[in-house]
Each structure stands twice: as structure tokens, then as C-alpha cells.
């Protein structure tokens, strides 16, 4: 159903928590950008053995900060680095392929990166309810255009233009974990002449 009303919260929205070490056979940590802060806190509160069977995949992301050196210095048994969350996916998928049950997965970064990481884990057969997540950085959304199906990255305005078909879209409070994106629906279909102003929103 189409409506221009904004609801304060909604049931399909991913909720993020705070990473905290739990008892597990092994640990896989995936971080993007400012998520490096969450990794530092996680390691600081973990037992000494935590790092012995832990993997960290860190993507610097598009922000100005580069925490690569600080992340490497934490002393994870295995450490992979990438430029962006998207670029980290092949290594993440390879790591997921080798995982055994009992590996706790920790994901952190901005909203777009978290969308990609959660989707990769689900595609590997890991139920999303067993994942730990913590949000850091931008709340810019990944948005799927419901009309042309194209995905627009880093959406910060309401409404927003589809990068593929150019329609002006209302970014709905409706999220698909399978697609890893919020839903965008044409905002002025009833009257294309009515072009609402864009506001910075996310």
C-alpha cells in the first residue's frame, strides 16, 4: 500500500545491537569503516583466548579514517583487508565457506555494509538470528527501486532518485534482508507534475 506517512519504527527494519564476545568455538569479525571502533571494544572485553581462533575482515570504506593499521595491530589470528564492503565480499564468502558450526559471527559498519554482510551470511546458510551486529557510521540506505529493480547505494535524501530508471522514489520504511535494501516506490505517480523537495533524511 502506498502512503507518504512516515512511521517511527517498523517491524521489517533491521535492529542493531552491541557486539560482545560470547562462548563459541571460533569467531569471525567483519567490519567496515567506523565499525573499527566496535572491533576495538569487542577485543578489549574479550578473554585472552578470543584472538587465538578469530578472523577479522576489515574494509576501510569510503570515509576519511583508515583504521587498517590499528585493526592489524589487534592481533587476530587471521586478518584480511579490503577497500570497501563490496570488495570484501569474495573473501568473506570464502571465509564463510570454510566455517564450522559454532563460529560466532560479528558484523559492524554502516547500514549499507551491514546489509551486504548479513546477506552474505544468510546465503551461506547461517540463520540471521544467530548474527551479532553493531551499527557505526552513516545511516545512508541501500534502496531497491520496486519498478526497475535497480539498487541505489548510499541514499541520504527523502525522496530519492533511482540511479537506474530515474524515477523519483519514496524510500519506504520496509526492508528486505534477502535483497539487503529498503524499498523505493515512485512518490509522485498520481501526479507526476507534483515534485516534492528532497530533504536530507538518512
Amino acid at each position: 500500500m502506498m502512503s507518504t506517512t512516515q512511521y517511527a519504527s517498523f517491524k521489517s527494519r533491521p535492529l542493531y545491537g552491541t557486539l560482545s564476545p560470547v562462548s563459541a568455538t571460533a569467531h569471525l569479525v567483519v567490519a567496515e569503516g567506523e565499525g573499527s571502533e566496535a572491533v576495538k571494544t569487542l577485543v578489549a572485553s574479550a578473554s585472552a583466548e578470543f584472538l587465538d581462533n578469530a578472523t577479522l575482515i576489515y574494509a576501510k570504506g569510503s570515509g576519511p579514517e583508515d583504521a587498517t593499521d590499528a585493526m592489524q595491530a589487534l592481533g587476530f589470528k587471521r586478518f584480511h583487508t579490503s577497500a570497501t564492503a563490496t570488495a570484501s565480499l569474495p573473501r568473506l564468502n570464502a571465509a564463510l565457506d570454510r566455517l564450522r558450526m559454532g563460529t560466532q559471527i560479528y558484523l559492524t559498519g554502516n547500514e549499507s555494509a551491514l546489509s551486504l554482510f548479513v546477506k552474505a551470511c544468510a546465503d551461506a546458510g547461517q540463520d540471521y538470528q544467530g548474527l551479532q551486529t553493531e551499527h557505526h557510521g552513516s545511516l545512508a540506505r541501500r534502496m531497491q527501486c520496486v519498478h526497475c529493480k535497480g539498487i541505489t547505494e548510499n541514499v541520504t535524501t527523502q525522496p530519492a532518485e533511482c540511479a537506474h530508471c530515474g524515477l523519483l522514489l519514496l524510500v519506504r520504511d520496509h526492508y528486505s534482508r534477502r535483497i539487503g535494501a529498503f524499498q523505493g516506490v515512485n512518490i509522485n505517480a498520481e501526479d507526476p507534475a507534483d515534485v516534492p523537495a528532497k530533504e536530507e533524511m538518512f
Binding site: M1, Y7, K11, Q144, V146, K149, H174, S176, Q183
Partner: peptide, 21 residues
């Protein structure tokens, strides 16, 4: 009535009803 299977597939009962006020 104006909902997308392509978007909602894979969701649970509460999630696909999220937009209902």
C-alpha cells in the same frame, strides 16, 4: 493490492506486515 512478492519473499509474518498501521 499493492505489495511486492519480489520484495517480501523470505520475510516472516511480522516483517511482511510491517507497513500496516
Amino acid at each position: 493490492a499493492d505489495w511486492s512478492l519480489d520484495f517480501d519473499i523470505g520475510m516472516n509474518f511480522y516483517e511482511w506486515h510491517a507497513p500496516v498501521p
